[in-house]
Amino acid sequence: MPLRVVEVVAGVIRDARGRVLLARRTEGRDLAGLWEFPGGKREPGESAEEALARELHEELGIEVEIGPALITVPQRYPDKRLRLDVRVITAWRGNAHGREGQALVWVPPGKLPTYSMPPADRPVVAALLQPPHYLVTPMPDGGDASWLASLEAALASGVRRVQLRAPGVEPQRWRSLVACAVHLCRQAGAEVLVNADVALAREFCIGVHLPAALLHSLDGRPLPTAIPVGASCHTAEDLHAAEALGCDFAVLGNLRPTPSHPGRAGIGWDGFAALREGVSLPIYAIGGLAPEDLDGARQCGAQGIAAIRGLWPAV
């Protein structure tokens, strides 16, 4: 039998200090004891905004002004398929308290990952804290100086997560380019990972991005938890392996046909959402995407978009 689909709305509520409100699921409910963003089920005939305003009044005793969508997370549970529609609350009035006996806590944003949450809520935390764009560098075919200039321009445009990737470049040249790129990224406050080379990542104290083949060959996380580990995924098996390994995020695609994958049809947004709902990792969509695809990506549960050409400026 097909699993029932449950539409849920939730709000990101901040206080004057910028802390985020979490509510604890009460005894007798599914996933009791876990912390979640406040909200509840959308009733038939309700808009998402109407449902969220009603739920937050019933649960917390507050009146709210609902702002932009943050992310919609499709998540599969053993007994249902959930669609969690999360909105930013731009203003609220009243004294927030647990009207249904639930505990509440105001959490500094950086502490949100330390709270135990249902699987659907974890990508919401990532959407609040992690970069929406993930740049994958192209080959330095135009010369090293031009490549570094384009990287610097990408960082100036706001890119804050970068994967350094240039297969086939001579090792000494690549090490020199990585050293320069790491310096630029750190100056800009951007997170940087290197593709596949765990030893090089350890040498420069940067993250590593694991190709799917390497992902399946490892029996443990290759770097400490404080250093990022990402993974390239194409199948549900890849995603489950990335989650089991303790990767911080994954990249899933290709969404559309691309020159780098000739003859491979894209999975499309429906295919992306169907794979996304099986894990609780933050997942970037990749494959023929550009910054203007971000809103559509978030509506399918993506952390954001990853790209080479779409995020790499010509200089």
Rank of each mutant, 00 (worst) to 15 (best):
Gly268Ala: 10
Ile267Asp: 11
His240Ile: 03
Gly263Ala: 04
Ala273Glu: 06
Ile227Val: 15
Asp248Leu: 06
Asp248Gly: 14
Pro262Asp: 05
Phe249Ser: 05
Ala273Ile: 04
Arg256Asp: 05
Gly220Gln: 15
Leu218Val: 11
Asp238Gln: 06
Asp238Met: 09
Gly246Glu: 01
Gly230Thr: 10
Ala241Gln: 08
Leu255Thr: 08
Gly220Cys: 14
Gly263Ser: 07
Glu237Trp: 02
His234Ile: 06
Thr225Leu: 13
Leu252Glu: 02
Pro257Tyr: 09
Gly253Lys: 12
Ala273Lys: 10
Glu243Gly: 00
Gly220Pro: 03
Val251Phe: 02
Phe249Arg: 03
Gly271Asn: 09
Ala242Pro: 05
Ile267Trp: 11
Pro224Glu: 09
Pro224Ala: 07
Leu223Thr: 10
Ala226Gly: 07
His261Ser: 14
Ala241His: 01
Pro257Ile: 05
Ala236Asn: 01
Ser260Pro: 05
Gly230Leu: 07
Thr258Lys: 07
His240Trp: 08
Leu218Trp: 12
Ala226Ile: 01
Ala250Pro: 04
Pro228Cys: 00
Gly246Tyr: 00
Thr225Ile: 07
Thr235Tyr: 11
Leu255Met: 15
Trp269Phe: 14
Val229Cys: 00
Trp269Glu: 14
Ala273Cys: 10
Pro257Leu: 04
Cys247Pro: 02
Gly230His: 06
Arg264Gln: 15
Ile267Cys: 12
Leu245Tyr: 10
Leu239Gly: 03
Asn254Val: 15
Asp219Met: 10
Arg221Ala: 03
Ala231Ser: 13
Arg264Asp: 07
Ala226Pro: 00
Trp269Cys: 13
His261Thr: 12
His240Asp: 02
Thr258Phe: 09
Cys233Met: 04
Ala250Leu: 03
Asp219Arg: 14
Leu255Tyr: 06
Trp269Ser: 13
Ala273Trp: 10
Phe272Thr: 05
Leu255Ser: 08
Phe272Lys: 12
Glu237Phe: 04
Val229Gln: 02
Ile227Ser: 05
Ala244Asn: 12
Ile227Gln: 08
Cys247Tyr: 01
Leu223Asp: 09
